[in-house]
Amino acid sequence: MENTVAQKIEALSKVQQIDSELDAIRKLRGDLPEEVQDLEDEIVGFETRIENLKKDLGEVEANIDQYRGKIQDFKKRITYLEEQQMNVRNNREFDAITKEMEMLDLDIQVAQKKIRDNEAEETIKRERVTDTNERLEERRKDLTTKKAELDEIMAESEVDEQKLLKQREKATKHLDERLLRSYTKIRDNSSNGLAVVSVKRGACGGCFNTVPPQRQADIREKKKLIVCEHCGRVLTDVEIIEEAEPTPKRRSTRGRKATTKKK
C-alpha cells in the first residue's frame, strides 16, 4: 500500500531528525577521522618512497660492481699487454701495444669516475632512506595516538549511533527511492545538513526567506510536498507563535484630589 503524502512528510521529518542526531554524534569526532585517513595515506606514501629508494640503491650498487669488474678486466688486459710488449719484434708493434694500454688506462679512469658518481648518488639515496624512515616512524606514532583518541570517542557513541542507524533504516522504508535520493541531494548541498525544515515566523527554517501565506496554507494541508522556492528544502510544517494577551493597564490615581464629605 502506497503511503500518503502526509505519511511521506512524517517519514521525511523523522529521517531528518535522525540524521541531525547522527551529525551531532559525528561532530564530536571533529577532524579525527580525516586526520587518521590522511596519516594512513601519508604512511603508505612514505613506504612506497622507501621501497623505490631501495630499488634505486640496488641499481646503483649493481652499477658500482659492474664498473669495478670492468676495471679488473682492464687491469688484467694491461698486465697481459705489458708482457707482450717485452716480446715485440719492432717499434710498430711496440707503439700499437702502448697505444692500447693508454686507451685502457683512460677506460679505467672513466670507470673510476663512474664509480665515484654512483657512490655519491648512493650516499644521497641512503640519507633519503634514513630521513624517510625517521619521518615514517613519526607518522606511525602520530597515527597510533590519533587512532586511540578516535577509538575512545567512537566507543562512547557507538551504541547510540548504531541505534539511530537502525531507526533510520526503518524510517526510510516509508520513502520511495526517488524521494530519498532528492532528500540526500538537498542535504549534501546544505551547509548545515538540513533538507527538511519548518516554517518559523513566516520564513523558511533553512534559508530564512519569507514563505507566502498561500504556500503556508498548502503546507498545513499536507496534501503535497512543498519546497522552499529559494533553497529547495522540503517544508513540512508551519510553527505558530502565539502572542501573549496584553496585561490590562492599571488606572493611575496620580493627580486626583481626595474628596471629603462636608459636615
Rank of each mutant, 00 (worst) to 15 (best):
T132C: 06
Q112V: 07
A120L: 02
E121Q: 04
L165W: 00
R139K: 10
L175N: 03
E177D: 15
D117Y: 02
K147E: 15
R126T: 15
R135A: 08
E152K: 15
L179C: 02
D151Q: 08
R181E: 15
N192R: 05
T144W: 03
M154Y: 14
S190K: 02
T144V: 07
A120S: 01
E121V: 13
V197H: 00
I153W: 05
K166T: 15
L179M: 11
A120V: 06
K125L: 14
R187V: 09
D117A: 04
K173D: 11
V159Q: 01
Q112P: 05
K170L: 12
A195G: 11
K114Y: 01
R168C: 12
E137W: 03
D142G: 03
E169T: 15
D160F: 06
E138P: 01
E119A: 10
K147W: 01
L165G: 09
E169H: 09
I115S: 04
R128P: 05
L165T: 13
N133A: 10
K163V: 13
R140K: 05
H174I: 14
R139A: 15
S157R: 02
D142P: 04
L136W: 00
K170A: 12
I124R: 00
E156L: 12
R139Q: 10
E156N: 13
I153M: 14
T144H: 08
I186V: 07
K141R: 08
E152D: 15
E122Q: 14
R128D: 14
R135C: 03
Q112R: 06
